[in-house]
Amino acid sequence: VTTYKLVINGKTLKGETTTKAVDAETAEKAFKQYANDNGVDGVWTYDDATKTFTVTEMV
Rank of each mutant, 00 (worst) to 15 (best):
Y46G: 00
T18F: 14
G42H: 02
I8N: 01
K29C: 05
F31A: 02
V43F: 11
A30E: 09
D48W: 06
V55C: 06
K11W: 12
A49T: 11
T17C: 12
K5E: 03
D47C: 08
E57P: 08
G39K: 08
D37A: 14
V22A: 11
E28K: 15
A30M: 12
F31C: 02
K5S: 06
T2G: 07
D23C: 05
L6V: 03
Y46N: 01
T18E: 15
G10H: 07
M58N: 14
T52L: 04
K11A: 08
M58P: 12
T45F: 08
T50H: 05
Y34L: 05
T2I: 13
N36A: 14
T50W: 04
T26S: 11
W44P: 00
F53Y: 06
K11H: 12
T52P: 00
I8V: 09
Y46Q: 01
L13A: 07
G39H: 09
E57T: 08
T50D: 05
Q33Y: 05
G39F: 08
V1A: 12
Q33W: 05
E57R: 03
V40K: 02
V55M: 04
V1G: 08
T17D: 03
V59R: 09
D23V: 03
T3K: 11
D47T: 05
A27K: 00
K5P: 00
E28P: 00
I8W: 09
D23E: 04
K29P: 02
I8L: 09
A24R: 13
T19M: 14
A35C: 10
A49Q: 12
N38E: 08
G42M: 02
Y46D: 00
A21H: 03
T18Q: 09
T2C: 11
E16F: 14
T54G: 03
D23M: 04
M58S: 10
L6F: 06
T45A: 09
L13H: 10
T3Q: 09
T54C: 05
Y34S: 02
D47L: 04
T54I: 06
D47E: 07
D23K: 04
F31L: 05
L6K: 00
L6G: 01
G42Y: 03
A24V: 12
T26R: 06
E57K: 03
T12Y: 14
V59E: 14
M58K: 10
K32P: 00
E28I: 11
N38Y: 11
T56V: 08
V43N: 07
K51I: 03
A30G: 05
T54D: 03
T17A: 14
E28M: 15
V22N: 11
D47S: 05
Q33F: 06
A35F: 03
A21P: 01
K20I: 15
A35E: 01
E25K: 13
Q33M: 12
